[in-house]
Structure formats: structure tokens, C-alpha cells
Amino acid sequence: MEPLDDRELDKLLQQWQAPGAPPSLRAKVLPEQSQWWRWLATGTIRVPVPVGIAMLLAAAALLYFRTYLPTVERPTVAQPARSVSLADFQPVKQLEPRIIGKTNETN
């Protein structure tokens, strides 16, 4: 019986198809894929090391400046003057002019 050559063998072998992974496999391996709220409690966020170091240094600097540097007193701002109501001003009701002469007479 004449054996199969490479091309014939490959062609035959390719006729044997395999199924893809069933949906049940995903359900078993990734059971919490749709539960996004779980991620809030258990998820992780990956931060690059340089970014993480920069954030730590920024937090440390902020804490240092707030704790140890003296507070700068702000100049007090002058209180605005009380507003004056023109209603307090009353015209002189009676005017009594007095003329004082040059002599030393006294009244």
C-alpha cells in the first residue's frame, strides 16, 4: 500500500477539527468577571514605581510643610468704617449769632 506523502498527510490531519473552549470554562475560571462592585473592595490598581515614589514624596513634603514650617501671619485687614447714616444729621434748629467787639467789655 502506497504511503501518504507529506501533503496528503497534512491534508488528512487538518480534517480533524477540535472545538473551541466552552463558555462553561470561562464561568469556572472567571466567575467574578461581571461583579464590578467586588473590584472596589478587592481589586488592585497598578502604579508604575516612579509614579508611586513621586506620590510618596509629594505626600511627605505636604505633611512636612504643614507640620513644621511656622505659619505666616497674615496682615490684618482694616475693618471697614461703620457706615454713617445721614439720618443722624439734623439741621440747627435755632441760630443765635453773637458779635464780639474789639473792646474788653464783657457781656
Partner: peptide, 23 residues
């Protein structure tokens, strides 16, 4: 997932066994 499952399926000849192995 497909590559691993297909390999296990061809090696073992059983869908159930292949799924167990892939998992």
C-alpha cells in the same frame, strides 16, 4: 483558552477532561 482547551481535547479525547485540565 482555546489553544489550551484544544490541546487538552486532542490529548485526552474527552470534552469533560479537557475542560478540567484547562481550568
Amino acid at each position: 483558552e482555546d489553544v489550551v482547551y484544544r490541546f487538552a481535547w486532542r490529548m485526552c479525547g474527552s470534552a469533560a477532561v479537557a475542560e478540567d485540565i484547562a481550568q
